[in-house]
Design a protein around this nucleic acid. Structure first.
Lengths: 209, 209
DNA sequence: GTCTATAGAAGGATAGAC
DNA sequence: GTCTATCCTTCTATAGAC
């Protein structure tokens, strides 16, 4: 025993952690093709041989790193656990937290990398979707169903309604612009206006008067 | 004269056209990093030297090709020129054509490549945004303003309303899934249902009763 | 303009010492 | 496990003949 052909390492090894941290920053910022294993080794302060002792190949290092990055949680989801007496206020708070998260540099960069490489690494598309957007729309949809049960909303299909609200947050003028890296960065006022408009449209369509 | 340091070529040269066609397919399908100049030359049936006689570098070839690909027009925009007596029908037709375009393999692939490379090639982000989404939201917003003027809609801000309708079309469950390459491919019924729901929510919020 | 052939650099991955 | 040093492949780009 103790002679596996696979790689087995202490996951808390400091060098390994350094590699993970360095590779995370580089891959998320620059993507797969633009980052060399030399660059990762240099940034992590280890040799390439050490790098390869922990990760069998560039592919596997990349996939491991990005899959882990996809597990980033949206703080907005916590708002859905709180009791709700004011629907408009709750949707506004949720929308603002959600949109600010989506516009943050790191989630934007992760989305770019995953979209770019999901053809060659289908597991990344799945990991991103299932850990992020899918979790949120389900949770949000369930919350909308509860509000409907309480007589505050009339939603034929809560998950569709959730998609619509989230879709309105990802507006072309603010979210797509940011996704494409176009200046200027969205101002707070723009974010608030987008959220307010989404809440208004959503409630006009779904609120029980 | 006739001795410019820059490259000047017959833009209709058959070899040049072959390079453009081959590079377009490869770059759009696989992205910048995954495509070598050897692969482009082979696919185009020319030598690398010929390739470099027409395009100074891989960067310039890539940027030229992708910028041109961003000029693809949305057929849906033509619908906005037709006279309109049934708002719901017009929005449904527009939405279906738009969403089917967005879900098509080539626009999805172009979007992936542009998002992936917009950090290193900011011009691509601009070209994509200004030729595609921005044109459409402006045109659609102007159309909504006309409908408002005709007393059919009450839209405080037509461009925001346009963004909202388009955002609801790009729903997580159908558009983001497709953007990430997740199976199964969207069925016609899913597309129609998404559009119908968007039209319904939009009119509930904005229609003059 | 177009080719063949190749220079020159960079990248992924590994051998062997410790 | 970690390093240094290196192998081999692939890549971008060009020289030189036609």
């Amino acid at each position: 025993m103790s002679h596996h052909p696979e790689i087995r390492h202490d996951p808390d090894s400091p060098k390994r952690q350094a590699v993970i941290a360095a590779a995370g920053e580089l891959f998320i910022a620059q993507g797969y093709g633009a980052v060399s294993m030399d660059a990762v080794a240099r940034a992590a302060g280890v040799s390439k041989a050490t790098l390869y002792a922990h990760f069998a190949s560039k592919d596997r290092l990349f996939a491991t790193i990005i899959k882990e990055a996809c597990r980033q949680k949206v703080a907005a989801i916590d708002l859905l656990a709180e009791p709700c007496d004011d629907l408009a206020a709750a949707l506004t708070a949720l929308g603002q937290q959600m949109l600010r998260f989506l516009l943050d540099a790191k989630p934007l960069a992760i989305q770019r990398v995953v979209m770019a490489e999901c053809v060659r690494f289908p597991e990344l598309g799945r990991a991103f979707y299932e850990n992020g957007p899918e979790v949120f729309r389900r949770t949000f949809g369930a919350w909308l169903a509860v509000q409907a049960g309480a007589g505050r909303l009339a939603v034929p299909d809560p998950v569709i309604a959730a998609d619509q609200f989230l879709g309105m947050l990802r507006a072309t003028g603010i979210f797509l612009r940011a996704s494409l890296g176009l200046p200027p960065a969205p101002a707070d006022a723009d974010i608030d206006a987008t959220v307010a408009a989404a809440v208004r449209t959503f409630l006009r369509a779904y609120a029980v008067e």
